[in-house]
Write a protein that binds this DNA or RNA. Sequence first.
DNA 1: CGTGTAAGGAATTCTGACACG
DNA 2: CGTGTAAGGAATTCTGACACG
Lengths: 101, 101
Amino acid sequence: MASYKDKKVITIGVVSELTGLSERKIRYYEERKLLAPERSKGGTRKYSFQDVERLVDIANKMEDGMQTFEIRKMEQRELKNKQLRERMLRGQINAAFNMRK
Amino acid sequence: MASYKDKKVITIGVVSELTGLSERKIRYYEERKLLAPERSKGGTRKYSFQDVERLVDIANKMEDGMQTFEIRKMEQRELKNKQLRERMLRGQINAAFNMRK
DNA sequence: CGTGTAAGGAATTCTGACACG
DNA sequence: CGTGTAAGGAATTCTGACACG
């Protein structure tokens, strides 16, 4: 499950280049709880490719005029829906398995 | 083809943590042409996860008493063999395809 | 609210060299 | 040959604040 995509290894300067967002914006979105980078011992932020993708998504939503708290809520909803779909899928698989008994 | 694994985005400090190798060693292996990180505008090195894997492999070979130039040659041989296998595979696929005509 | 910026300091990285073996 | 280390400087990042709107 945890692959390269989820490893927090990228510094903010590189994230800024990859996303085209200013460091200021990236730090601000963290302040608004839209992402959670890790920290080195010295305190420098480390991001994952997953975070980079999330930032691109956030940038799109900001362009659409959404506010940070709306984006946060939307992401929470999406996460819950995803978990729900997975639970239902597992349920169907279990049901199909039990029918064979 | 080019995925997260090949993106040069990791600084040497993180690579050092991920591999357990000293920064000195990592820079030295570059000097011996065993890997080729990219550079930021300011000159700081950027590595990929592919490079991290390569470094772990290099570390194992160094432990086995191999010298850097031997490792370099071995990797070149492996690369050529890999390319050869791919060429042969393509050749077989083409042959099978032509038989149908 | 979201973002730019100047400020001062701390963490990170760089190179070239000397040392040892 | 492979690696540690001290040295000095440069690039990178951090925080808290002020500004604007």
